[in-house]
């Protein structure tokens, strides 16, 4: 029972890590390697608003999500525009931006026990004899709400439909007046904002440090590679495979083996089915 509950929670956390990365890649083919850095930067931003400026928690979180979303947007127009369409250069640019952010945080001394975000609500419940805190339940709720919201957004708004169009056939999208740079930058903004939302709900579960940025990137990559870089069901399945794999590994082999799971999964999938379990493209070999 505890395997089931904590497996689900871990999986949803992984899906939250990966959602923004997959979204931006699925729509505009941009692999945003600054994803993890933006994630942890959100934590720092919320912490600063909360403790240095003294804003209420909710407002700090909301502002941070907006700022990080805008940062993704700015990253596109400021750095990516010149190399857009050259995958390797895009990857290097985003990775460099990510490292710059992470090292900057490290240099500012962003580590240690004082850097943690408060839980939204204290306490917990027993589910089938397993103790679960409210924060983790909140994470599950956020995951589900996000999936529903994303679905509605993508299928029922103009921008969402333009995202769909651009993802499927760029030239045809262009010929009906959808602009690829505009949609590309919006998709990166949306992906970054999703990373920020994940950070806001997940980070209160532990202490923050900039190394988490690398970890989140690895998990996002692992999930995306296993599920196929452009497929939403694949992303969710990928999260559950790794999530349950990790919790089972922790239980039967010990927690120190947990990090092995995503890496082994990446190797297995790349060896057997390089485009991912749900992927349609064979681009992966070139990208990673």
């Amino acid at each position: 029972m505890s395997l089931l509950i904590y497996g689900t929670i871990t999986s949803i956390i992984l899906a939250l890590y990966a959602a923004g990365f997959s979204l931006a890649y699925g729509i505009s083919g941009l692999a945003n390697f600054a994803h993890g850095a933006l994630y942890i930067l959100t934590g720092y931003s919320v912490w600063t608003f909360l403790n240095q400026i003294g804003l209420p928690y909710f407002l700090s979180a909301l502002l941070s999500v907006i700022i990080i979303g805008f940062l993704g947007f700015a990253l596109y127009w400021g750095l990516l525009l010149r190399v857009r369409g050259v995958p390797l250069a895009e990857l290097i640019v985003t990775f460099a931006a990510g490292i710059a952010i992470l090292e900057l945080l490290m240099w500012k001394g962003f580590y240690g026990i004082q850097y943690s975000l408060p839980l939204f609500v204290r306490g917990g419940v027993k589910l089938g004899g397993v103790a679960v805190d409210y924060q983790r339940l909140f994470v599950i709720g956020t995951g589900i709400v996000l999936v529903v919201l994303l679905y509605l957004f993508v299928h029922h708004t103009k921008i969402g439909l333009a995202f769909r169009g651009m993802a499927q056939n760029e030239r045809t999208a262009l010929s009906v007046g959808i602009e690829s740079d505009w949609i590309g930058s919006l998709s990166l903004a949306a992906g970054s904002a999703l990373a920020a939302v994940a950070a806001v709900v997940v980070l209160p579960l532990g202490v923050m440090e900039s190394a988490i940025g690398y970890e989140v990137l690895i998990y996002a990559l692992a999930v995306a590679i296993i599920g196929g870089l452009e497929s939403t069901p694949g992303m969710i399945l990928g999260s559950f495979i790794i999530g349950f794999g990790q919790v089972a590994t922790a239980k039967y082999l010990g927690p120190k083996w947990m990090i092995i799971v995503p890496l082994v999964a990446i190797i297995l999938v790349l060896a057997v089915r390089p485009s991912g379990l749900f992927g349609q493209f064979k681009e992966l070999e070139e990208r990673i």
Partner: peptide, 24 residues
């Protein structure tokens, strides 16, 4: 407005969604 050669459509979307995307 151009209708490109070799019927370029949005393959994963249904008919109505294809048309809605075009109304951007």
């Amino acid at each position: 407005v151009l209708s490109r050669e070799r019927h370029p459509i949005f393959r994963d979307s249904d008919v109505v969604e294809n048309l809605k995307i075009a109304g951007y």
